[in-house]
Amino acid sequence: MASTVGSLGAAEAVLTPFAVAFTRPSPERLDVTIHPDNLLTAIRALVDESWGYLSAIIGIDRPAQPPAEGELQAEGAVEVLYLFCSGAAVVTLRINLPYSQAVIPTISGIAPTAMLYEWELREMLGVDVVGLRVTGHLILADEWPEGVYPLRKSFTGFNQAATVVKGA
């Protein structure tokens, strides 16, 4: 098995044409920020190189900070992370999607295991995954209202104040 440094180097070489920025959060990790338009080609490049396997797709809500006086409210975003693993090496492709443009293509045609993660992303964070051939709910109840995404920070429950946990 290639060393972790070698694996990360190989991934960096493959992803350089698509990268907006590279970071190394820890010795075994390489984070690559890419433009959403390059998502499919970047992932196809990794898959064509047989670099590791898709381990997870993670969505993180990034709401905008409250505006300073006199300024307009900025738009929040959902950040989507695609984690690929090879041995100890972890490569993360990061894309940032403003709420108004929270649309991505499905990668399940390239990596079939993505389907469940993309379904969860759509349901829990409201990212529209174009081409995902599943309808209905995966996790949420059938009667769950449309347009309510529980993993958005703005969701604090129905008809109640923000969740307060005793002792927290």
Binding site: H137, L138, I139, L140, P150, L151, K153, F155, A162, T163, V164, V165, G167, A168
Partner: peptide
């Protein structure tokens, strides 16, 4: 079809220490 015992743990984690 999954999710019959989904407990919202990831959301719950954000409200706990």
């Amino acid at each position: 079809r999954l999710g019959y015992v989904h407990r919202g743990i990831e959301k719950g984690a954000e409200a706990r220490t």
